[in-house]
Amino acid sequence: MERSEENMNSLANRTGNYFDPFSGISRDMTQAFFGANPWAGFFSPAGSNHLRPAFRLDVYEGPEAWKVVSEVAGVNREDIALRYEDDALVIELTVKPAEGSNTEPRKYARTVRFDGTVDIDKVEARYNDGHLTVVLPKAEETRPREITIQ
């Protein structure tokens, strides 16, 4: 019994990796629903429901900027929120259910971190045909520069 409990903890930690506050809850729920089955946390919705598949994205780097392209078909411009916080770009979408459906709107978010400093005031974004493109210019200190030999 003690051994299976240990397995469960490690599984719950694994599935709850992205969302620490909930790992405890999912562990409790898997125990409540599935007893001591060590695989419960792995396959059950209770253990994985906070890890929804997100949208796809590409990240490119140029000499003077980074570029992030993401696929967000069917989302209105006003339902896309872009933030730059903790040195990372956060793209958050609110996907509204189809008309006449009673389900709650769902939120999806992805975070992109860059190896260098972004010039936040010059970040530009455009949205076309379901493709969101964000261009983040590098701050002066991050750009490659030539050094003159004296």
């Binding site: 796809r56 994205l57 590409d58 990240v59 490119y60 780097e61 140029g62 000499p63 980074w66 570029k67 392209v69 696929e71």
Partner: peptide, 10 residues
């Protein structure tokens, strides 16, 4: 190729 791919999913 001014844009170098860092990460690709699309």
């Amino acid at each position: 190729s001014t844009w170098k791919v860092l990460h690709r999913e699309i």
